[in-house]
Amino acid sequence: MIPIRQSLAVSMSGLMITQDRFCHLIGQTYDAAVGQEEWSAVLGHLLTAIGGICVALSRHGGPTSGTIAVGCDPACLQQYESHYHRIDPIRPLLPRQPSGSAFDDRALVPGRDLVRTEFYNDFLARWGMHGALSWHIEEPQGQVATLKIVRSRRHTSFGDDELRLLRGLAPHLGRAQRIERRLRQGIAVRPRGSSPALTRRERECLCRIARGASSKAIARQLALSAHTVDEYVESAMRKLRTGNRTEAVAVALGLGLLDAEAPKIQENR
Results as ranks from 00 to 15, higher is better:
residue 1 M to H: 10
residue 2 I to Y: 00
residue 3 P to R: 07
residue 6 Q to N: 06
residue 8 L to K: 03
residue 9 A to D: 11
residue 10 V to G: 08
residue 13 S to T: 14
residue 15 L to N: 07
residue 16 M to Y: 07
residue 19 Q to M: 09
residue 19 Q to D: 08
residue 22 F to D: 07
residue 23 C to Y: 01
residue 23 C to K: 14
residue 25 L to V: 06
residue 26 I to V: 15
residue 27 G to N: 02
residue 30 Y to N: 04
residue 30 Y to L: 06
residue 31 D to R: 09
residue 31 D to T: 00
residue 32 A to M: 04
residue 34 V to H: 01
residue 34 V to F: 07
residue 41 A to T: 14
residue 42 V to F: 14
residue 43 L to M: 15
residue 44 G to W: 12
residue 44 G to A: 10
residue 45 H to Y: 11
residue 46 L to Q: 14
residue 52 G to W: 06
residue 52 G to N: 05
residue 60 H to R: 15
residue 63 P to A: 15
residue 68 I to H: 01
residue 74 P to F: 12
residue 74 P to V: 06
residue 81 E to R: 02
residue 82 S to L: 09
residue 82 S to R: 08
residue 88 D to G: 02
residue 89 P to K: 04
residue 90 I to M: 03
residue 92 P to I: 00
residue 92 P to D: 00
residue 101 S to T: 15
residue 107 A to Q: 15
residue 109 V to G: 08
residue 114 L to D: 00
residue 116 R to W: 04
residue 117 T to A: 08
residue 120 Y to N: 02
residue 121 N to C: 02
residue 121 N to L: 04
residue 121 N to A: 04
residue 126 R to C: 05
residue 129 M to N: 08
residue 129 M to K: 14
residue 134 S to F: 03
residue 137 I to L: 06
residue 142 G to T: 01
residue 142 G to S: 08
residue 142 G to L: 03
residue 147 L to W: 06
residue 148 K to I: 13
residue 150 V to R: 08
residue 155 H to V: 09
residue 155 H to T: 12
residue 157 S to H: 11
residue 158 F to A: 06
residue 159 G to E: 12
residue 160 D to I: 14
residue 160 D to H: 14
residue 160 D to C: 09
residue 163 L to P: 02
residue 166 L to S: 05
residue 166 L to V: 14
residue 166 L to E: 12
residue 170 A to Y: 02
residue 171 P to I: 02
residue 171 P to E: 05
residue 173 L to E: 05
residue 174 G to T: 02
residue 176 A to C: 04
residue 177 Q to P: 01
residue 181 R to N: 14
residue 183 L to N: 01
residue 184 R to C: 10
residue 185 Q to I: 13
residue 193 G to T: 06
residue 198 L to M: 07
residue 202 E to Y: 07
residue 205 C to F: 00
residue 211 R to V: 06
residue 214 S to I: 09
residue 215 S to H: 14
residue 217 A to S: 10
residue 218 I to R: 10
residue 219 A to W: 08
residue 220 R to E: 11
residue 220 R to Y: 03
residue 222 L to F: 08
residue 226 A to W: 04
residue 230 D to K: 07
residue 230 D to G: 02
residue 236 A to H: 00
residue 246 T to H: 14
residue 248 A to K: 07
residue 252 A to I: 01
residue 258 L to S: 00
residue 265 I to C: 03
